[in-house]
Amino acid sequence: MELDELRIFQAVLQEDGVTRAAARLHRVQSNVTTRLRQLEDKLGVPLFLREGKKLIPTEAGRRLGDYAERLLSLAEEARQAVASAEPAGSLRLGAMESTAASRLAPVLAGYHRRYPTVQLELQAGVSNDLRRAVLEGRLDAALISGPAGDERLDEALVFEETIVLVAAAGQRELSLRLLGETTLLTFGHGCAYRQRLEAWMQRQGVQPRRLVELGSYHAMLSCVASGMGLALLPQSLLDSMPLMAAQVSTHPLPADLGQAQTTLIRRRGLRQPALDALQRLLLGEEN
């Protein structure tokens, strides 16, 4: 069944005949009659008993009338939801764990207060995986490290991060020799900060003795504090965890490695009011 056929059927049912239904729909009577017959042929049952020019709904016609009303109402609701400029529906956002932990709480709290009807879902992950999820439609947008580097994506710079090496408390300086003898604590291969650290060490001609992958920054900082190894973290994350930060020492990186951009990526040309509103908050365009 097509929605247009249901609209014609509903008009005939409500107007008690083809003539007034055709006037209401701004159609010629022959078109209304033809479309009504086609609907009956599709369903395989008569919807009206015909007595001259009078149409009397059959039992099947009355039952279909209830469904037609609900289906047409739902279709109109869907049309308004899609066409509306007001944020609504669901929004699937991805973010690096460091960004989720240190940057997003006040933004998302403000967003929820302003747009309570939006169902926001947050998924943490590494940059490469988040970028892939946006491209494949599993996420509406994501906050990743660095530029997207893909013409299929729009991107907006939302945060500037200072990246530091983190070691156990009391560690005064980090020599190349020490870097080669230590254990590095990182996320998986898709982590942009891990790639940054590995590139820097390779440039220095240094290979770490051991590399251990961990699943959370809390675990990573705890291991660093206990003297297990070194990690590369954004300063904003440490600032958001002052008690944990007091148990470690921080060490600057060279200027070209010590600054990182966090960008919001989304499919190019995709209009989504809920995402547009979030982007405005992230960019500080709304208070």
Results as ranks from 00 to 15, higher is better:
Val45Ile: 12
Val45Phe: 11
Val45Gln: 15
Val45Tyr: 08
Pro46Lys: 10
Pro46Glu: 11
Leu47Phe: 05
Phe48Cys: 05
Phe48Lys: 01
Phe48Val: 05
Arg50Tyr: 05
Glu51Asn: 09
Glu51Arg: 09
Glu51Trp: 02
Gly52Tyr: 01
Lys53Ile: 00
Lys54Cys: 00
Ile56Met: 03
Pro57Arg: 02
Thr58Glu: 07
Thr58His: 04
Glu59Asp: 12
Glu59Arg: 09
Ala60Phe: 07
Ala60Leu: 01
Gly61Tyr: 03
Arg62Phe: 01
Arg63Gly: 00
Leu64Ser: 03
Asp66Thr: 14
Asp66Arg: 15
Tyr67Asp: 13
Tyr67Arg: 12
Ala68Cys: 06
Glu69Gln: 14
Glu69Pro: 00
Glu69Tyr: 06
Arg70Glu: 14
Arg70Val: 08
Leu71Asp: 01
Leu71Pro: 00
Leu71Ser: 07
Leu72Arg: 06
Leu72Glu: 06
Leu72Val: 06
Leu72Gly: 06
Ser73Trp: 04
Ser73Pro: 00
Leu74Ser: 14
Ala75Ser: 14
Ala75Gln: 11
Ala75Met: 10
Glu77Pro: 00
Glu77Tyr: 08
Ala78Tyr: 09
Ala78Cys: 07
Ala78Gln: 15
Arg79Pro: 00
Arg79Val: 04
Arg79Thr: 08
Arg79Leu: 14
Gln80Ala: 11
Gln80Ser: 08
Ala81Phe: 02
Val82Pro: 00
Val82Met: 12
Ala83Gly: 01
Ala85Trp: 03
Glu86Arg: 12
Pro87His: 09
Pro87Asp: 06
Ala88Leu: 08
Ala88Gly: 13
Gly89Thr: 07
Gly89Met: 07
Ser90Trp: 03
Ser90Gln: 14
Ser90Lys: 13
Ser90His: 10
Leu91Met: 03
Leu91Ala: 06
Arg92Tyr: 13
Leu93Pro: 02
Leu93Lys: 05
Leu93Val: 15
Gly94Gln: 10
Gly94Lys: 04
Gly94Phe: 02
Ala95Phe: 09
Ala95His: 04
Ala95Ile: 05
Ala95Glu: 08
Ala95Thr: 06
Ala95Gln: 04
Ala95Val: 07
Met96Arg: 08
Met96Thr: 15
Met96Glu: 14
Glu97Gln: 13
Glu97Asp: 13
Glu97Val: 11
Ser98Phe: 07
Ser98Leu: 08
Ser98Trp: 03
Thr99Glu: 01
Thr99Leu: 13
Ala100Glu: 04
Ala101Ile: 13
Ser102Asn: 02
Ser102Leu: 05
Ser102Trp: 03
Ser102Gly: 10
Arg103Asn: 08
Leu104Thr: 01
Ala105Pro: 00
Pro106Trp: 08
Pro106Val: 11
Pro106Arg: 09
Val107Tyr: 05
Val107Ile: 15
Leu108Asn: 07
Leu108Glu: 09
Ala109Tyr: 10
Ala109Val: 10
Ala109Arg: 15
Gly110Ser: 11
Gly110Gln: 10
Gly110Asn: 14
Tyr111Trp: 10
His112Gln: 15
Tyr115Gly: 04
Pro116His: 04
Pro116Cys: 07
Thr117Gln: 15
Val118Cys: 04
Val118Lys: 05
Gln119Trp: 05
Glu121Pro: 00
Leu122Cys: 06
Leu122Trp: 09
Gln123Cys: 01
Ala124Cys: 12
Gly125Ile: 05
Gly125Thr: 09
